[in-house]
């Protein structure tokens, strides 16, 4: 039961990766691509949570936390760049 749900969930998250990857490539504008990157890193957290359950390992938690931190900082830095043309003022 749990294994079936996990397999389905892996498939769904993989589809999510492909869809946001398409938006990343298609654009058309810079904010669109940033939004796609934002979605991609959240998807990566989802994938890590699933992997953690699948392998019953808590190791992935630290990776998920780091991706959450770095992804957020990255999105903010890119948005700041679009707004200001510069990141560090």
């Amino acid at each position: 039961m749990l294994n079936l749900a996990l397999s389905l969930a892996f498939a769904l998250v993989a589809v999510a990766f492909v869809l946001s990857g398409w938006r990343l490539l298609a654009g058309p504008s810079a904010p669109d691509r940033i939004l796609a990157l934002d979605t991609l890193y959240i998807n990566a957290i989802a994938l890590l949570a699933l992997l953690g359950i699948h392998q019953s390992s808590t190791l992935y938690f630290e990776a998920a936390l780091l991706i959450a931190l770095m992804g957020f900082v990255g999105t903010v830095a890119l948005c700041k760049f679009l707004l200001r043309g510069d990141i560090i003022e």
Partner: peptide
């Protein structure tokens, strides 16, 4: 069952979010 439901709902919403992006 509860775990499976949570996992499926979570993955489903993740997928729907990416679908909305497209």
């Amino acid at each position: 069952i509860l775990l499976s439901l949570l996992i499926l709902a979570g993955a489903g919403f993740t997928c729907i979010g990416a679908l909305g992006l497209v």
